[in-house]
Amino acid sequence: MGVGVVTDPSNEPTADFLDVELKDIVQEYPKPEGDGVHRVLDGINLSFGEPTINMLLGPSGCGKSTLLRMLGGVRPIGVKAPTSGEVIIGGQPCDGPHDESVMVFQRYANRPDLTIRENIAFPFRLSLWKGRVPPAEREKRVDAMLKAVGLEGKGGLRPSQLSGGQNQRVALARALVLRPRILLMDEPFGALDAQTREEMQHLLIDLWKAQRCLVVFVTHDVTEALLLGDRVIVLSTSPADVVDDFPIEEPRPRSDAWLMSTPVVAMKERVLDRLHQAKTGQKGQVRVSF
């Protein structure tokens, strides 16, 4: 397994931004039947040049997670990755997990034997972060994160004493406590009920405003993509290809009124259409504009 690019730890993490570029990324998995390969990503070219929130939208099973795992360097996916193509972060080719990127999942994987505080401070048990963040600084950051995610005073509780939404807050805090320059989120709110999900969406916006970084957020929910994204990237079904890629300039938080407005409804319909076409196999690089 390759080692990611190690950036200078003396840099203030949020101070300068790392641009991420994917060049002709192809990913194949061996077929379960044993013979041949299954192409999941078919020559993806994408670049991220600003610390914005980017929504990766696509039908289930199209390769969103596979793609996301390459955006913070290359994270192990069980086979050689990528099959071909290049991941370039901060101008340097990257063939292993990049130190400045962290990932948040739908399954928050909080350790039940640790308190909330200890869970947020968990990465500091790892040699990578131990050397980078001095102990006094760690405590300060954990305190700040507890407050930022609205779990002040709950630091001493255990994950089983919190709700699913609160546990997802812990997972988010555990990632952001590292001040990553690249935050990768794989359907993080997918398992939450509608109201909790909305709360988490607002929380994410607030956290991002306070600590700007490149966010790539995978979702299969068009509304979520429109509510959160500076940019929405739509993928076709596998082999996945970028079928749509457009910016949204409306400031956040975005209101229900905005979401219901005619151009946005039209945009949503076009994206749904694109997704539907992508599913049924018709492809084409059609840009949705509004």
Binding site: R75, P76, P97, D99, V102, M103, F105, R107, Y108, A109, R111, F122, P123, R125, L126, S127, L128, W129, R174, A175, L178
Partner: peptide
């Protein structure tokens, strides 16, 4: 396996993911 993966994605080495997750 999710615990191992989650630790790896936070920067743990393989052994650290075993040891701490």
């Amino acid at each position: 396996q999710q615990y191992w993966i989650a630790a790896r994605d936070l920067g743990a080495t393989e052994w650290e993911a075993v040891r701490h997750a």
